[in-house]
Design a protein around this nucleic acid. Sequence first.
DNA 1: GCAATATCTCAATCATTGTTGAAATGTAGA
DNA 2: TCTACATTTCAACAATGATTGAGATATTGC
Lengths: 120, 120
Amino acid sequence: MMDERQAIAAFAALGQEHRLRIVRALVTAGPDGLAAGVLAGGVGVSGTNLSFHLKELSRAGLIQSRREGRSILYSAAFAGLSGLVEFLMRDCCQGRPEVCTPAVEALTACLCLPGDTAHA
Amino acid sequence: MMDERQAIAAFAALGQEHRLRIVRALVTAGPDGLAAGVLAGGVGVSGTNLSFHLKELSRAGLIQSRREGRSILYSAAFAGLSGLVEFLMRDCCQGRPEVCTPAVEALTACLCLPGDTAHA
DNA sequence: GCAATATCTCAATCATTGTTGAAATGTAGA
DNA sequence: TCTACATTTCAACAATGATTGAGATATTGC
């Protein structure tokens, strides 16, 4: 379960234009991930700067990496992302479900809820 | 629908110890909200500093305020919070639901999903 | 081993952000 | 209107974060 320190690091990591773009690119790319060079082109930062941001995201537990040939492939840490959301919304309704209904609606529209993928 | 600029502001706002505590306190407090003075005590910041952070959170669309007597009551903007999550996870699985299953599981454990609360 | 590719580390600089105290604003009750 | 209370604004300083370029490390194919 995510603690406050991790959550702060993760939110701060996401609160930066280039890093947010990196994470969204990786979320869209899926588990296979993208090579650092490809990311640099897509996000529009220099290699040095990208490396700095990737390290930051890794420290925050939002991405992971693996080497493949001479490239390093980065991918989104989906468990980290969901843990973050869980931390933010923990104790959100305290027995009053109507409080978090807007949040739930936004999420069900976005996520592929298992056992509920027939429509869409 | 939330755009990138808003999302960056919101994540950056949450990526700060005191502001994250403020938001979590307000999420827990629910729609009624809390007075600024109460928040200052709970979070452990000076009035001046609290005011700075509240303004920042308000600018980011994560909280709202209303005056009541000589207090100002702040409350969480649940729509803003859920929009943020939606932005982060948009296009997360591209037809591969297994990708975001961990995220979904964390959320169903936390949120009071309407019409789907029977099973854990 | 050598050259080419891909990525990272380091040190310096610049910009942004958080914190503080003093003073100002707005509200309520005598 | 006077005083007390609640919160905000302002200006200054300290701390943190982003960016850059040069050089270092790791991998591959010849």
